[in-house]
Design a binder for these strands. Structure first.
Lengths: 219, 219
DNA sequence: ACTTTTTTGTACCATTTCGCATTAAATTCC
DNA sequence: GGAATTTAATGCGAAATGGTACAAAAAAGT
């Protein structure tokens, strides 16, 4: 397998420290940006509707190079999804860790989520997990495992938020952090779906605001 | 267009009243059950991954018959989705109309939803809207319109529920029916997604229970 | 300069895909 | 029984698909 000077899989902004001194013909592409392009395509069209020709055109790599660098189509899909999850996690982890009031933390999380779901030149891109990975999850055990992992990861992160808030007295005693966490995740999911149907950002923000209100005052 | 004695598009259980007296060779299939099979396939695999051969095999109709009866692949997809929505609406409309306490109505709705999402021989089938239609919605305006319609229809139905409950004093004065409706829809959506990842029914029911608790006690 | 190594680029193959043209079958009307 | 009409069945064809073989190219090592 070709796996030598593997750069950090996500960030993609670190200059090659010195001369990598690779032996053969140098690559005409940067694996990280290529994977980003592939990710965009898969996210927009799903697995089946994205052809290797599309991927080749978008990444600038011809098919044999694609194959050599990332494996076959399914492997490329999985790597794209992995990359997506890494990026999404990186964008949210600071906020989840931050020591701020519950409402503020939720608002910031949802703002990030909306940014992720609504960006994209050819329309809103939605959430990879919700839109295409969940569809593949029925038939593909590996993808299913990743989806499950992503779902529970989000549940847990929200769960910590709410438990923390409850300890601080920001929530009434009767509040159940686990249920609230599921509702918070559900709000993420509903937003992802609606974004895909081109519901404008303002409406999505209104939905978020209403949900946050309920979750913060929850008894 | 071939559109003469169009039977009721959904129910499919009404015996042909008398002799329909069709002129040529009789059909070897029943359009309604064939559409049901097509629906199953599209729902499981999505638009792109479902081939006309698959559809032909599942419906028992060969391709030209399929084409003649339902139009091309996209039209068949749209008709399948329409059928799905009709069925889902039919399964829920009674409960939405029923005059029962809020909690009971919600519980019944979610039970139906779980039945729909979890049935299927080759794994849980999830929700057509959430799983495949929302993906097509970005690029296909017609499908997008249907998805939007479905989303707002559900929001509205839940909205009526909560407004009704509030009038009856089942909810505190500060409760906002619209926000609660969005949360109720979001719970539908999160369940559909998790079902697709094969989360067992027990867990989904627990999530529903927690959500219903929050929504019923909501201030 | 020559070999080695790694990547690129072209071309190809087998298969699948969608859609349709054409022929054969089954039924009603005359 | 024969014409008309509607459907079924076979199969074709052009295009697209995923994947790969093979030679040319570009770099480093010797």
């Amino acid at each position: 397998m070709v796996q030598k000077s593997k750069k950090p899989p996500s960030a993609a902004k670190i200059e090659a420290p010195v001369a990598p001194k690779r032996r053969g013909r140098p690559r005409a592409y940067e694996p990280d940006v290529a994977l980003g392009k592939a990710l965009d395509l898969f996210r927009r069209d799903g697995f089946a509707a994205t052809s290797l020709d599309d991927l080749s055109a978008a990444t600038g790599m011809n098919r044999p190079s694609l194959y050599g660098a990332f494996g076959d189509k399914r492997e490329l899909y999985i790597k794209s999804y992995q990359r997506y999850r890494d990026d999404a996690r990186a964008a949210m982890v600071d906020i989840f860790r931050a020591d701020a009031p519950l409402r503020e933390r939720l608002e910031r999380i949802y703002r990030i989520a909306l940014d992720i779901y609504l960006s994209g030149e050819s329309g809103p891109r939605g959430c990879f997990t919700v839109m295409t990975a969940a569809s593949e999850a029925v038939s593909d055990p590996d993808i299913r495992a990743m989806v499950l992992e992503g779902l529970t990861e989000l549940d847990k992160a929200f769960g910590i938020c709410f438990r923390h808030a409850k300890e601080r007295g920001e929530l009434p005693d009767g509040a159940d952090p686990a249920s609230l966490a599921h509702l918070a995740s559900a709000t993420i999911h509903t937003i992802a779906i609606r974004a895909r149907a081109r519901v404008p950002r303002g409406e999505l923000e209104a939905i978020v605001k209403g949900a946050v209100d309920v979750m913060c005052r929850a008894k």
